[in-house]
Simulated scan of single mutants.
Amino acid sequence: MSYVDRIARLRITLNDTKPPIWRTVEVPLTTSLKGLHEVIQAAMPFEDYHLFDFRVGEQRYPIPVPQFDGPETRHAKLTKLGALIEKGFSEFVYTYDFGDNWQHTSKVKEITQADPTMPYPRLVGGERRAPPEDVGGTWGFEEFVEAMTKPRHPEKKAMLAWYGGPFDPETMDVEAIEAAMAKLAKRRAIGRAAFAKGRPHGG
Results as ranks from 00 to 15, higher is better:
Thr30His: 00
Tyr120Asn: 13
Met118Ile: 12
Leu78Lys: 12
Asp134Lys: 05
Ile85Arg: 10
Ser106Arg: 04
Arg122Trp: 03
Pro121Arg: 01
Lys80Arg: 15
Thr13Cys: 09
Glu142Lys: 13
Phe92Trp: 15
Asp48Thr: 04
Ser106Gln: 10
Phe141Met: 03
Tyr49Ser: 01
Pro166Trp: 00
Trp162Arg: 09
Glu178Asn: 12
Thr138Gly: 10
Gln41Ile: 10
Ala161His: 13
Met148Ile: 00
Arg55Lys: 15
Tyr49Gly: 00
Glu86His: 12
Glu58Arg: 15
Pro119Asn: 11
His201Met: 08
Pro200Arg: 14
Arg11Lys: 11
Ser90Gln: 13
Ile63Phe: 14
Thr105Trp: 01
Val108Lys: 08
Arg23Lys: 08
Asp134Cys: 14
Lys107Leu: 07
Phe195Lys: 14
Val145Ile: 15
His37Asp: 12
Glu86Asn: 08
Lys18Met: 02
Pro71Ala: 05
Glu133Val: 09
Thr112Leu: 14
Val174Lys: 14
His75Lys: 09
Asn15Glu: 14
Pro154Trp: 01
Pro169Val: 02
Ile7Ser: 01
Ile21Cys: 09
Leu14Asp: 09
Val65Lys: 05
Val93Ile: 15
Gln67Cys: 06
Pro45Arg: 00
Phe89Met: 03
Tyr120Ser: 13
Asp97Arg: 01
Tyr49Met: 01
Phe46Gln: 09
Pro62Ala: 11
Met148Ala: 05
Leu10His: 12
Pro28His: 05
His201Phe: 07
Ile177Val: 15
Pro121Phe: 02
Lys183Ser: 13
Gly164Val: 03
Trp102Asn: 00
Leu14Phe: 09
Phe98His: 07
Pro166Tyr: 05
Glu175Ala: 13
Ala42Ile: 02
Gly126Gln: 04
Pro64Ser: 02
Ala114His: 10
Thr171Leu: 04
His104Cys: 08
Tyr94Glu: 07
Gly203Lys: 13
Pro121Met: 05
Gly165Trp: 06
His104Met: 08
Phe98Asp: 06
Leu29Phe: 05
Met172Gln: 13
Leu29Trp: 03
Arg60Ile: 15
Gly203Ile: 10
Asp5His: 14
Glu91Phe: 02
Pro19Cys: 10
Lys156Asn: 10
Leu84Phe: 01
Pro19Leu: 08
Pro154Met: 00
Ser90Cys: 10
Asp173Asn: 12
Leu36Tyr: 03
Gly70Trp: 01
Pro131His: 03
